[in-house]
Design a protein around this nucleic acid. Sequence first.
RNA 1: GCCCGGAUGGCGGAAUAGGCAGACGCGACGGUCUCAAACACCGUUGACCGAGAGGUCGUGCGAGUUCGAUUCUCGCUCCGGGCACCA
Length: 818
Amino acid sequence: MAEPYDPQAVEAKWQQRWEADGAYQVENDGSKPPYYVLCMYPYPSGAAHQGHVRNYTFGDLLVRQRTMQGYSVLSPIGFDSFGLPAENAAIKTGIHPRRFTEARIEELKSSLKRLGASYDWRREIHSHDSQYMHWNQVIFQSFFDAGLAYRKNAPVNWCPGCQTVLANEQVLADGTCERSGDLVEKRDLEQWFFRITSYADELLSALDDLEWPERVKVMQRNWIGRSEGAQFRLPVQDSDDQIEVFTTRPDTAFGMTFVVLAPEHPLVAPSTKSEQADEVRAFVERVRNESDIERLSSEGPLDKRGVFTGSYAVNPFTGQLVPIYLADYVLMTYGTGAIMAVPAEDQRDYDFAKAYGLPIVRTVQPPADWEGEAYSGDGPRINSEWLNGLTDTAEAKAKAIDWLEEQERGERTVNYRLRDWLLSRQRYWGCPIPVIHCPEDGIVKVPAEDLPVLLPDDVEFRPTGESPLRYHSEFLNVTCPKCGGPAERETDTMDTFVDSSWYFLRFCDPWLTDAPVDLAAATRWMAVDQYIGGIEHAILHLLYARFYTRAMADRGLSPVDVREPFERLFTQGMITMDGSKMSKSRGNLISPEKYFDSVGADSLRLFHLFVGPPGDDFDWGDQTDQMIEGCSRFLGRLWRMALPDGAASAGSSEVDDEMDKEVHRLIARVNGDYERWSYNTAVAACMEFLNSLYKYVQSPSGYSSTAVGFAVDSLLLLLAPMAPHITAELWERRHPEAEPLHVQPWPTADESKLVVDEVTMVVQVNGKVKDRLSVSPAVTESAAAELALASTRVVEALAGRSPRNVIARPPRLVNVVV
RNA sequence: GCCCGGAUGGCGGAAUAGGCAGACGCGACGGUCUCAAACACCGUUGACCGAGAGGUCGUGCGAGUUCGAUUCUCGCUCCGGGCACCA
């Protein structure tokens, strides 16, 4: 009886071996070609869940395969260790976020190690490391110097009960605070922003060249939301004020019959006539107290959604007066906060015009069969003086803009939906923003020699929702570095997306003590050749990282020519349960530990690879455990076959060309599957091959042990990135003198052994399979047709009828048509 | 509303360039081994008709192109995701 496979003993042995040998440590000055594989570093929420297992299995597979292929593979790992959950836990339990987080990191690390994931652990980064915070702050100050980080007033969610600002996520759908239940108000408060909009154009256009999933690129394009048009000014009647509007359809401006301002627009007060004042004030007040969600989702009658100011502006195209309205659907945050309304060509303006009895003037002739209301398609211009007759919208637009520019009333502009990144958080557990507010000197950077600004540990976590830093007088009260007078330290901390926006650059040389990024090391490794993570980061994290990489390059903080952080991106599918995302709060997490303790990590890894395409979601269900068992059974079969005294230990020493060819076909097939991330079919191919190997060694006519030896060794090499422990152990037992499996060269198929002498040709009659013939792969069209017509099965099916047509596609198929 | 995906046996999925639908695994059924069980191994397994040979149907629905469509085109249905008064 062969020795049974003991996954726990074997896996522990190899994990220790790899770590002790530094098997996946790479140096920055190696001679092998560099390759950078990175999985999105995790938020440490405790022991790993199946989503982590899947993510890190894909990443580890690639690291191991590229290493065998001769690359020097950079495979770092770190932890996104700042963030709200730790602080909320502190408020609840009194445990300091640092202690809480570090304990969670240890749990997660232990899971990753038991998975057998291979990292250069010397490069580990935590975003709350004081070193990392230091460089975070240096980068921030550099951005501040360049005007890329700035402060401005922004409308934020303010909870009167908690006396603090809330993140959008903390405001419930009904506009109340998730903690106190109070109605959340909008307040203008000073916040920190990154000027990501100044990179909008580049962030958009550079997407085209990235090897990213198309849907992620589409999401980013929509998020940036570029639109071309014109911006122009309308004089307000009896006033020096001018209303600036943005439009993508300047060609329809002759049909502008009113103007609409956002309720927050600065010209609202000056344009409000006294007889309208009460109504306007009530309206503005009401909109102000509506949550964003209410305001943006309201679908009710339009007559409650606007109000007349009593004033008029001049439409520069017609010279006519048009009334100025306010409406809640005009947003202060997009364009200029004011629009020209053209009801004939815009449905929402049309509805508004109907509700308020405003005139509708068509400037584009709709087609004769047009039955709709507003018409936004092409057509001849009418009622538009010097645009009349033009049918091409682009041409009409260009002409309208030229006219505006000639008249100096407006100009061609591009508008983006993208807004600057609000990065300040009124929270403790994040990286402090390194500035001081001085009543005399304004905002002053914390001097370089005083960096990093660290978080004081002796703070009290009170359930006020406000940052404990505000109550820490030692932290708060400082002297101004410029004038020496009393000043206050900034108590806002940075959004945790800041931490994850450049960690991949730091990994290149995390030991560097005089700059955030080593330019030489980053030049060698960047861009990340393969980035792997969840689709949920399609917009924010990936966009911020792309912005940061550019801004750092432009500030000399990273290599100038590295403008994109992630060359290739793979977004793996989610693990769900009954269709919803697995999460701690839902209580449906399935821990990998129980599988490590039973079938072992290799079986679980293999299952995750085998269960379906890596990009698809997988629903964890009743049969899942049995599928994992199936993977474990396969590894058991592999074990018994591959043990030196196992299933195939007694064959003859003759050569077997047929078996050899089968092995080369397997190698070619699995390599193809690896390259296109089709791991499920790669596993299937290996299973199929092992099945046929069992048939081979059990065949009564005997087998070649040389051929089986080559077959098993090849299988071990191909499976090494997927199931690294069991394959390493078997390799060592089979080849005690050889180098270990993970440094063996990756197998490639011998092209000459892929040619076959015979293939199966399908013969159809009227598209229905009637026969299968064995033919030479070089069979000619006429020979194939002849063979097909000679088949007795075909003759029977024809029943005397003569074929009308014979379509031969040698050597795969012949279709006889009657 | 707009933009992207997706739909194949009892289940997860395969079919890489329009050419054998259902690889591989799970489950189910039958068997071998065993006192019995576990493990392992062997066989069957899309539906329907047929004793069998074999036949008919079959990739969400309806059309179309083609000798031939899971694959391409058009029109729907359902499910999932993203954006959503963006001027």
